[in-house]
Simulated assay, not measured.
Amino acid sequence: MTHILLKQIEDISKDKNENKENSSIAKYLFKHFKEIDKISITKIARECKISPTKVTRFAEKLG
């Protein structure tokens, strides 16, 4: 399961057709994957300079 999630995040981070916000979230999560279960939506949003709603939508996209 972890490998699948990591692969999904990596694919989004490298996808040239992905929007800027999703790409930013994916790059952040890929870089901080070992702490992913401890990082809040608010922290991700703040670090990526986007709204928490966009982070929630990103999570929904992952499933």
Rank of each mutant, 00 (worst) to 15 (best):
I39S: 03
C48D: 08
I4E: 12
K61L: 11
K34D: 15
L6D: 01
F58H: 04
V55W: 01
N17C: 01
Q8P: 02
I12C: 00
A45L: 12
K54E: 15
I36V: 13
E47P: 06
E21Y: 09
A45R: 08
F58G: 05
R46C: 14
E21A: 09
E47H: 10
S23R: 00
D37P: 04
I25W: 03
A45P: 09
E47M: 14
K38Y: 10
S51N: 09
E35R: 13
I39F: 05
I39Y: 04
L29W: 05
E21C: 01
K61C: 07
E35T: 13
H32D: 09
E47N: 14
K61V: 02
N17R: 01
A26Q: 02
N22H: 12
H32Y: 11
I44P: 04
L62N: 04
T42R: 14
T56N: 08
N17I: 05
M1D: 04
E35P: 12
L29M: 15
I44S: 04
L62F: 06
N19W: 00
L5M: 06
A26Y: 11
K16V: 05
G63E: 04
I25M: 03
E35L: 10
S40C: 04
N19C: 14
P52W: 03
R57Y: 12
N22T: 02
F58S: 05
A59D: 13
S24Y: 07
T53V: 13
T56C: 08
T2I: 05
K27D: 07
L29T: 06
A59V: 07
A45D: 13
Y28H: 14
K16D: 00
K54M: 11
V55S: 04
K34T: 14
I36Y: 10
K43E: 09
I4H: 08
D37H: 12
F33W: 10
L6K: 14
K49S: 15
R57G: 07
P52I: 07
S13H: 00
K43A: 10
T2L: 06
S23N: 03
E35F: 13
Q8M: 11
R57E: 15
R46A: 15
E10G: 01
C48M: 09
E18W: 00
N17L: 02
N19R: 09
K38M: 10
I39Q: 01
K54H: 06
N19G: 11
I44F: 01
G63I: 06
K16M: 00
E35K: 15
E10V: 08
L6P: 01
I44Q: 02
Q8L: 13
K27W: 04
I44T: 08
D15N: 10
Y28L: 11
